[in-house]
Amino acid sequence: MSIWELFVKSFVEDGGYKEVLRGLAVTLVTAICALIIGIILGTIVAFTQIAKGKGPILRFFKGFFKVYVSIFRGTPIAVQLLFIYFVIFPAIGLGLMKAEIVGLIIFGLNSGAYVSEIMRGGILSVDKGQSEAGRALGLNNTQTMLKIVVPQAVKNVIPTIGNEFISLLKETSVLSFIGVMDLTKAFREIGSANYEYTIPYLILAISYLVLVFIASGIVKLIERRMRASDNR
């Protein structure tokens, strides 16, 4: 049998395509949910870091988030997966949690660390005069943030958030470290069925390429929509 026939056999006849579809779903769901968690978490972290004031509670959270961001940005995602799934979760009695869920949470935490920096940059990139004008009219800090600064910051960060999503999409390929059947693992299984990896891995690479291509198209679309309000 040629390598192509071998691939077709395990992909179609042995039902490999089912695994691949499931893997694709896991990859997409993990990336999307991680981004959502990341945006929520990152926004909270960013606002805490920017907030002025010297209260002990605020200071505690600032310090806590600083440690969180440096840990998650300072270690590889694969190490985070291994350590949290095999060491921390069992230690706190969550050892039986499904690997898919754990993976999703860890990717969310990881993304939150990066998004917090993106958000912080986005908020700081809005000209100081904008918030001064708001404050000078008598609006309080929260009103100024919500009505003036954040809408402009969001517009500024969309391209970078898009990039974050694309890297998440690719990084989920290490989910198999904790035994999750994602797109990468699904193709690896097909290959190892008869020790012929050429075609499976080629198609795997093409799949990621297509996914990223689609994702960046969507980001561009959103970006253009946002810009439209600039020159009305």
Binding site: D127, A133, A136
Partner: peptide
């Protein structure tokens, strides 16, 4: 501040 209007050198109209 509600009763004190301010005009800036760089206008600072809300861009959004």
């Amino acid at each position: 501040r509600r009763k004190v209007g301010m005009v800036f050198q760089h206008f600072n109209l809300f861009n959004n």
